[in-house]
């Protein structure tokens, strides 16, 4: 089949996508939910909701709170567990008009390896994303993705089980995201997803109680976009594997920011909740942009915003 828009085609490791747009894990179900009114063939890939070794009921309600320019979520990784998932869910994803990326979460290193091996063995799944923003029960609940070495061990364990493209999704809730990115690359990641949600909370001033059932949650949407752009920009300087940029992408300008910062592809999550037509519109607008600027491929603009500070009179570590 002839690729209709070669200018937008990209690769993440072995994963070839017709469009550089992925639908964020946990935001798009399995695609089925959006299929009645979205042309899935105009989407690069859907990243499925993270699945775990054992079933998880998920968090108490409320699980969502609208906040300025975004939202907080605390879903709690509700999912039926890998066995049930393989048996009852996965077959539905066969024959989707876009690529399907599985997402894995875990609470022990071994969980990642176990689930990755089983999931990656299935034909419906073309790549695996590792969601490392989970607490490690063996280490007093420290988040895997907050520690470069723990991240490395998760990636190595998963890497050993599959040759399919492995995307590691980084948490922004760290002091040095670049160090984690570097370790993920060294441990065998084929691509990095940057960033997952930013921790936050909201309080109901009527009842004096946290507004989320889980108390804390993850912030997404335009509110986190500058944080995400910076993370992509800095990580792109030290890794050579592709980056899937995400965090509040809604418009063409938002998408371009991520490509220019160094992302090879973009992921759209929360924007689908505003208007499900956004992914299709973005692809059309990206195509028109390239044509208008006479650019042959989206890949030509990746990382083009990287510049040196001309006059370095800023003191280090403070942009204030």
């Amino acid at each position: 089949m002839v690729n209709p828009q070669p200018a937008l085609a990209i690769k993440l490791g072995k994963l070839e996508l017709a469009y550089p747009t992925l639908m964020g894990s946990g935001c798009y179900g399995s695609g089925e939910e959006f299929a009645p009114f979205v042309d899935l063939s105009k989407i690069g890939a859907i990243v499925l909701k993270s699945v775990t070794r054992l079933p998880r009921l998920g968090n108490p309600t409320p699980r969502l709170v609208q906040t300025p320019a975004g939202m907080l979520n605390a879903i709690g990784l509700q999912n039926p567990g890998i066995e049930w998932y393989l048996e009852h869910e996965l077959h539905k994803y066969a024959g989707r008009p876009c690529k399907i990326v599985g997402s894995i979460a875990g609470f022990e290193i071994d969980d990642y390896a176990y689930v990755c091996e089983r999931l990656a063995a299935r034909d419906e799944i073309e790549a695996i994303e590792l969601n490392v923003s989970c607490p490690n029960v063996a280490q007093e609940g420290e988040t895997f993705g907050c520690d470069p070495d723990l991240t490395a061990r998760v990636v190595e364990a998963a890497r050993a089980t599959t040759n399919k493209t492995l995307i590691v999704k980084l948490s922004p809730n760290v002091t040095d995201i670049v160090a984690v990115a570097r370790q993920a690359e060294n441990s065998g990641a084929d691509a990095l997803a940057v960033i997952n949600t930013v921790r936050g909370m909201a309080i109901d001033v009527e009842t004096w109680r946290p507004r989320l059932g889980n108390i804390t949650g993850g912030l997404s949407g335009p509110a986190i976009r500058p944080i995400a752009v910076l993370a992509v920009y800095e990580i792109a300087q030290v890794v050579s594997i592709p980056i899937v940029g995400q965090g509040g992408i809604e418009t063409l300008a938002d998408a371009l920011e991520f490509f220019l910062a160094g992302a090879t592809a973009i992921s759209i999550g929360t924007a689908n909740f505003t208007d499900p037509r956004i992914p299709e519109r973005l692809v059309a607008e990206l195509q028109a942009y390239l044509t208008r600027r006479n650019i042959g491929s989206i890949q030509e603009i990746v990382g083009r915003a990287h510049v040196e500070i001309a006059t370095a009179h800023q003191y280090e570590g403070d942009e204030g």
Binding site: Y28, G29, E33, F34, G58, R63, L64, I75, T270
Partner: peptide, 16 residues
């Protein structure tokens, strides 16, 4: 009624 995210079944934010 509950706070909705996607409104179409994709995010599991609106549960009971």
């Amino acid at each position: 009624e509950e706070t909705f995210g996607c409104g179409v079944g994709g995010c599991w934010g609106c549960v009971v």
